[in-house]
Design a protein around this nucleic acid. Sequence first.
DNA 1: TTACATATGTAATATTATAACATTTAATTA
DNA 2: TAATTAAATGTTATAATATTACATATGTAA
Lengths: 138, 138
Amino acid sequence: MKNKQLTNKKEILTKNQEIVLKLLEKSNEPLKAYSILFNLSEQGVKAPLQVYRALDRLIEIGKVHKIESKNAFVACINSNCTANSNAAFTICEDCDAVSEIHDNKEILKNLNYLANREKSKLNKYNLELYITCKNCLK
Amino acid sequence: MKNKQLTNKKEILTKNQEIVLKLLEKSNEPLKAYSILFNLSEQGVKAPLQVYRALDRLIEIGKVHKIESKNAFVACINSNCTANSNAAFTICEDCDAVSEIHDNKEILKNLNYLANREKSKLNKYNLELYITCKNCLK
DNA sequence: TTACATATGTAATATTATAACATTTAATTA
DNA sequence: TAATTAAATGTTATAATATTACATATGTAA
Ligand SMILES: [Zn+2]
Ligand SMILES: [Zn+2]
Ligand SMILES: [Zn+2]
Ligand SMILES: [Zn+2]
């Protein structure tokens, strides 16, 4: 048996998706698409499209998020995102450190309220908090 | 007296800033930088830099916001943004309508809480709510 | 097998944004 | 006022980000 049977088809990744995700997971900062491309050139990734296509899919299934204000990509560390595509990040304006916010039930509740107030339906959200982080405040 | 005296120096706009802001204010949707450029070509705006420089400044003083996930720009409709650079938007996934959220005190309170929880200081935030709007829900 | 959908490869090109440097205009100050 | 400095503008080129279009390959279902 080549590929073990998975209950969730979404979790079967193709080769390109796999190596892009691996790279993002071992990176400690968001990576840009062309940086991913250069990093993976020895693994057969030779064109922007290979990267963008893999990223598109990974984002679609919630394994990767795009930090819109940075045009950069991070692996998701919050198992819950897979379900709803929501994401919330803090971005330190001093040291550029980016981290995903885990416990965001309260946020979601508020945002749902905001959307409902205008009689519209919230599908997903993107939240970027620009902060000065603990270390940089010292 | 050519220019009336203003208490807040920030509100004196240069020619390019003025015409870019005017265009955004009369537009009913976010505009992309190159769309602004083409729109203003007859008014002497001939190079991307003229647009980007004006936008940078307008964003800095809170008169314009960038919708990061669309690389597009809108005039601020919330007098309060000038002070804090915060912005929150709803974006309809069906009809692309974008609108700025006015009353966001509650959001700010929540986000401050999130930042404080991690012992960091919130400087500003960018929030994009992807919704299905009132009209498109019908 | 055939038919279909999905994934991949490749080249070209579109879109968004900035760097570098020259010139002009406005604001300060000697 | 003239001289000095700072801010804004103009212009060209180029960098960085992302997509289109089309050819080929691979996997799946009938
Ligand atoms: Zn996540
Ligand atoms: Zn920091
Ligand atoms: Zn605003
Ligand atoms: Zn709509």
